[in-house]
Structures are given as C-alpha cells and as structure tokens.
Design a protein around this nucleic acid. Structure first.
Length: 559
RNA sequence: GGCCCCAUCGUCUAGCCAGGUCCAGGACGCCAGGUUUUCAUCCUGGAAACCGGGGUUCGAAUCCCCGUGGGGUCACCA
C-alpha cells in the first residue's frame, strides 16, 4: 500500500558520470515544483546499463545534489552535513532499477502472455544491415514485422531457452497526442514508433520500459525533463497504454547550450586541454605518474578520447589551465557558491515572478524558488550558458557576504581544493584579507592570484621594469628616496595592522605635504613588484612587518 | 533525410495566452564618464533586438499561414 501524495516528481539520473549542469537544472525544477505543490520529490537511479553504471558515480551525484541544496524526500539515503537525506516514506523502494528486475519481468511476462510483446532474435549485426539498407533506399527504418512473421509464443519460448534474445513491444498502430505543460499539444502520427526493445538480451529492461513501470509504481504525477526526451514521449505513452497505466503530466524543458551554441559536454574540457597541450608543444605526458605516456599520446591524437575526470583535473592544475565547467562538481571546484549556481541555472529557461513593485527579479534563494516555481513560466526556447553572467552573479554574492562569512567560506573551500593556501594562511589572516579579496574576485579560485605576493619569498619579488621606471626613478623627490625615508616610519610602528599602517601612510603624506600616490605606489612596487595590489594596509599587514621591511630594503638596494 | 520543437538587444530574458499604455523594459557583457593611494568594487550615462514575407484587424512583438534559420530525435545508452 502506498500512501497517496498529490504531487510526486522525480529525478532519475543514470549513474554513469558526474552530475551535468543540465541534469542539475532538471533536478532543481523537479524539486522546486514538488516543494511548491507540497508534494514529494523522488530520486531514482537508472542503472540498467551495467557496463557504464557505477556506485561511485551514484554517490557523487547524490553529493552534488545535496551541495546544491536539493534534498529528496524519497530515494537512496545520503548522510550529509549531519543529517540524512532520502528514505522511503511511502514504501515504493527500491530506488535502483537494478534491484527491481522482478517487477519488470512480471510485467513483461504479462505482455508476452497477452501477445502484446514478443521475443526477437535479430542480432545487432543484422539490424545494422537492415538500417543501412533502409538508409540506402532513403527510407526510414522501422522494426515492425507483419503479424504473420511473428512465431507463436510457444515457439518463441523454445528458442529463448536456447539462445539469448530481446523482448519487443508490439507497437499499436495509433497516433499519440500529449498535452505538454510547456509545449502545449504535441501530436505524433501512427506508425512512427516501432516495436521497441523492452528487455535487453542481458535480461535488463531498457530505459523506456523501466521508466514507465517505475513512474507508475512510484506514483509519479509530473515528469519534468529536458526537451531531448520529447520524442521519447510517444513511446512512453504507448507503453503506458499497453500496460493499462495512467499517463503522468509531462513538461519538457528547453535545453542548455554552451557559449558557442553547442551542447554542453564533457568533451569540451578535453578539447580545451588538448589545444593547450598542443600549443605548449608537449609530446609526452607532463605528469606520467597520473597520466601514463601511452594514455596521454592516445588522448592527444584522438579527438574522441576523454581522460578520466581526475586525470584531466591534474593536467589542468599542472598546466595552470582553467577548463570550461560543465558539471556541478566543476563549478564547486572553481569556487562558485551553491546558491548562485542554483539561482543562475534556474534562470536558464525559467523566469521568476516580478517583484512587488513590478520590476524584474533575478536574484533569489532556494526558499524563494520553492515558493515561486511555476511550470507556466518555463520558456520554450533553448538557452546558452553565459559563464560571464554566472561569474558576475557569484561576484555579487561574495560581495554581499560579511567579511566573517566570506572568510569562513573561503577557508572551507581552500581546505577542500587548495590545501596549501589553507595551511599557509591562518583563519585570522583570512579574516584580515577578506575585505580586500572579496571585491577583487569572482570565485574562490581567483583569490590566490590576488594575494599571490604574500606567498613569495622576500628575495623572489621581481620588480616590474616599467613600474620601477615610473614610480621609483621619476619625480622629485623620487619614489626611491621616499621609500627609504618611509621605511624608518614603518620600522617604528608598534602594531603592524591595516589601520595603523594606513594611518602611518596618511600621516607621512600630510607631514611631507605630498599626495598619497607619491608614496603608495613605490611601496606597492617594493612589496609586490607591481603597481597593483589590495589597499596598502592589508597588503603590508599580510606580508608582515619583517617581510615588509626586508622587501623595502631589498628594493632600495637592488633597483 | 523522416518526425518533432523553437524564433525579442552579442547573451539570459520581460512583454505574447486575454492585440493599442512598447519609437519594446531589466540583467550580463561592451563603450564613455565619475569616486578612489593602484587595481577592483561602487555610481552615472550610452550603443544594442521584435528573422523574412503574406494575411486578419481601425491597430500586431503580440493572432493565422508560408518561407528561412536554429535545435532535438531516429540504439539491446539513458
């Protein structure tokens, strides 16, 4: 007995890789719709492809969803930040299709007995030949033998006992019209669907069959999915009709493309890396310990080949390369905030309601989405993923955080993805730097670049030639002279903290009757080697009194 | 190629369903100024779109048709 819930949505990924950004949006919308309607959001693992599915991938997907703030009411459980997500409140488990074979087989048996499905022993090779023949004749291939060509069930069973075969559903000759919640009425003519395979030779159900059976058994009321599934709908409706199931409401969402107008795919990342490797003129693997030379060579020469996720990450890190992000984990690793990612992808193909004053709304959080989401405001046309706009949203979100919150989040991110930084900077250092770093970065990953001078040895600072000429040599008095003079002031500073340092600089300028730039720029060059850095106070404080004095001394002496 | 979907600034989009208030609004990006000890932030301003052609109507971005363009899909993958 399953308890009745008004609305049940589901997200049903196949655990064959990371959670793709498109999948994340589907999950987000399913989640939001269920929340909005006070229903349940269910998570199911479609692992009927035995060769490609993995448990590691399943867990990674669960974690990615949880990170985004998408929690599921029903489905596999995940312990996340002290709580457990998932469960089986209505008694519809299991949630892995590989554990539901008996169920599918029972239904298939029912169909076989009723003559609505039949065993087929055509080999893949034979099918290939048939497809090619049809193509040569410019005809559409449709597997749909005449009634007379299908042996009796008894004969089918006899043969099935000896050799593996698939089970196909006998496609009824009828047209299908679905009322899509996004697209409206969509009709498919009779004879479009062929006798599709519902059970593979390995005994596993095909996607189409498993989805239909599970959605029925799990009481799914609304199917929100990408538009790439639109042509699957007549197949699913057909299976539902033959099985005597109800048809859930469908809502097909527009697709998400990359900035070049193509499909956002993991291949993009390999392509970017491959291009960089070729430009660098590399032939052997730069990190043979992670990527063996033969693997590297094969990958380099074959555009279709992809490296393992971890290998690609290592290569990118080694070459200090930033790869285009395509999966949720990529964005997390790059230092985007989960709320921002969710906010941004929600805007791809959907529009929130207006603000109370009638103005357009763009920024919102998960709570708002859960209250405001509406299928009626899902758009129909595909959207490009604009990374620049995402970056801007993230930048704004970081800027809106308090220094304390930023420092904590930055530190947490570093601990996961940049442990050297977390080790070298104390929590206090990061809190002190927060205000200066915040407005200068779009992601956490950019922070290191802003404060790179902190990590350099005092003797390793390279003084930029142009900067030296402009701010140290020119002027009367020259920057170099002021620098030597000001160093003494700094030396006498008791508390080497941002405010005190700023005060000292200001006091010095007033006493000397010179503008701030006259001394600020020479100091920058002495400390960082360039004319660009965060405000002087934090810049010097981050380097420390000893380092500051040493760098100024070295600058004065060596330039 | 068959089938199906879509079409507003470079990009995401509001407006379209219930035609007039739209010489089309917002955001990102871009350009130009301003604030600032550098950079960044921030502030102000600007350029920038209804794919084309027919209808319907007093009137069309909004409704209809055709064309064009873009996309999806045609597996024992999901």
């Amino acid at each position: 007995m399953t308890k009745h819930v008004d609305v049940v949505t589901r997200f049903a990924p196949s655990p064959t890789g990371n959670l793709h950004i498109g999948g994340a949006r589907t999950a987000l919308f399913c989640w939001a719709f269920a929340r909005r309607m006070g229903g349940h959001f269910l998570l199911r693992l479609e692992d009927t492809d035995r060769a490609r599915s993995s448990e590691a991938s399943a867990e990674a997907i669960l974690r990615d969803l949880a990170w985004m703030g998408i929690d599921w009411d029903e489905g596999p459980t995940l312990a996340y930040e002290g709580r457990t997500i998932g469960g089986d409140p209505r008694g519809v488990a299991p949630f892995e299709q590989s554990a539901r074979l008996d169920l599918y087989n029972a239904e298939i048996e029912r169909l076989l007995e009723a003559g609505k499905a039949y065993y087929d022993f055509t080999s893949s090779e034979q099918l290939d030949v048939m497809r090619k023949e049809a193509q040569a004749k410019k005809e559409n291939f449709r597997f749909h033998p005449a009634d007379g060509e299908i042996p009796s069930l008894g004969a089918q069973r006899q043969r099935a006992a000896r050799e593996p075969g698939v089970v196909r559903l006998r496609a009824p000759e009828e047209s299908v019209t679905v009322v899509d919640e996004v697209l409206g009425e969509v009709s498919f003519g009779a004879g479009e669907v062929d006798d599709l395979v519902i059970r593979k030779a390995d005994g596993y159900p095909t996607y189409h069959f498993a989805v239909v059976v599970d959605d029925e058994r799990m009481g799914v009321t609304h199917v929100l999915r990408g538009q790439e599934h639109l042509m699957n709908t007549p197949k699913h409706v057909m299976i539902q009709r033959v099985l005597g199931y109800r048809t859930p409401a469908y809502a097909h969402m527009p697709l998400i493309f990359n900035d070049k107008g193509g499909k956002m795919s993991k291949r993009e990342r390999d392509q970017t890396a491959r291009l960089a490797v070729k430009e660098a003129g590399m032939s052997g693997s730069p990190i043979p310990g992670v990527i063996p030379d033969d693997v590297f060579a094969g990958w380099l020469g074959d555009k279709a080949r992809q490296l393992e996720h971890s290998q690609l990450e290592a290569l990118a890190a080694h070459m200090r390369l930033s790869l285009p992000e395509v999966s949720v984990d990529d964005f997390r690793r790059a230092g985007y905030l989960p709320g921002v990612v969710a906010n941004f992808i929600a805007l791809l193909g959907w529009t929130p309601s207006k603000n109370a004053d009638g103005s357009d709304r763009e920024k919102f959080d998960m709570d708002f989405l859960a209250k405001d989401f509406d299928i009626a405001r899902i758009g129909k046309s595909n959207a490009r993923f604009d990374r620049a706009k995402l970056a801007s949203f993230n930048s704004d979100a970081l800027g809106a955080m308090s220094d304390e919150a930023f420092a904590a989040a930055w530190r947490a991110w570093c601990e996961d993805y940049e442990p050297e930084t977390a080790a070298r900077l104390s929590a206090g250092d990061m809190a002190m730097l927060a205000g200066a770093v915040k407005p200068r970065v779009k992601t956490f990953a950019e922070a290191r670049g802003v404060i790179g001078f902190v990590f350099l040895d005092d003797e390793a600072i390279e003084f930029d030639e142009k900067a030296v000429e402009k701010v140290l040599r020119k002027g009367e008095p020259s920057g170099l002279e002021l620098l030597g003079d000001f160093r003494a002031t700094l030396e006498g500073l008791e508390r080497f903290e941002p405010e005190a340092i700023e005060g000292a600089v200001k006091g010095y300028c007033e006493a000397k009757g010179i503008g701030m730039g006259k001394i600020a720029q020479p100091i920058r060059v002495a400390i960082t080697g360039t004319t660009v850095s965060p405000p002087l106070g934090v810049t010097l404080a981050a380097v420390g009194k000893r380092g500051t004095l040493a760098r100024i001394k070295r600058c004065v002496e060596s330039v």
